[in-house]
């Protein structure tokens, strides 16, 4: 069974993508979460470039460049600045035991495979294998949003969902039309900027970036009024 080199490369990248999603879940420190998030962005851009090269869709090169600049560099840097300037406590505070989260994540990955695998067989594209991995990554990123206390980790989770969707798009249809992609990219950028501004505002209002603390504070206010 000989598989073309590009195919092997894409499969390898997909596996790395899955690995990064797990690594994001497993991290203890905010800074390493950002590193892995940046790695995810870089991986995305490499995947886009490989698919662009092997399938001849030239506009994917643009996507690749954009992914690299935006997701690999700009967004992690923005988040890093937020962390530094707000002096957010540098530990990621999970709601669940890490080992339990990991086992849950494995189960989710299996579930994704179980659901997507029958669909994959319909597709003829070289990249079809990556579909179930992309789905698993989306679910894992959502799991990350669910199981973390800090608002910043939730934002990273949100951005990771977007990354995984982008990955799914490359895998399923060789990428979205460039114009849509640019639109989404700017949306994400704006969203991140807004998040950043919000963090500052939230901090001023609640003195904390933990979601639970915000809720508690709101309840207090309701009681007072």
């Amino acid at each position: 069974m000989i598989i073309s080199f590009a195919q092997q490369l894409i499969d390898g990248l997909a596996a790395l993508m899955l690995l990064v999603s797990f690594a994001l879940l497993a991290q203890h420190r905010m800074l390493s979460v950002l590193h892995w998030f940046a790695a995810q962005g870089v991986l995305l851009s490499i995947t886009a470039a490989v698919v662009a090269y092997s399938s001849g869709h030239d506009e994917l090169y643009a996507s690749a460049a954009m992914a690299f600049l935006l997701k690999g560099m700009l967004l992690p840097w923005l988040l890093w600045r937020v962390i530094r300037q707000l002096h957010v406590h540098r530990e990621v505070e999970p709601l669940m035991n890490n080992a339990v989260t990991m086992m849950l994540a494995l189960a989710i990955t299996l579930f994704a495979f179980h659901v997507i695998h029958p669909i994959e067989n319909i597709s003829e594209l070289m990249t079809r294998n990556t579909m179930s991995i992309a789905t698993a990554c989306v679910l894992l990123a959502m799991l990350m949003m669910m199981t973390r206390k800090k608002a910043i980790t939730q934002v990273v989770g949100f951005l990771a969902v977007e990354n995984s969707l982008f990955f799914a798009a490359i895998g399923a249809t060789n990428g979205m039309p460039l114009i849509v992609e640019i639109g989404i990219a700017f949306d994400v950028l704006i969203a991140a900027l807004i998040f950043g501004v919000f963090f500052f505002e939230i901090r001023n209002t609640f003195d904390s970036l933990e979601v639970d603390a915000m809720q508690a504070s709101l309840v207090d206010k309701d009681d007072e009024s």
């Binding site: 596996a15 899955l18 690995l19 797990f22 990955t109 299996l110 495979f113 294998n129 179930s132 991995i133």
Partner: peptide
């Protein structure tokens, strides 16, 4: 993950 990717990919 190795096991899963074996079956997936």
């Amino acid at each position: 993950l190795g096991l899963i990717t074996h079956y997936m990919l």
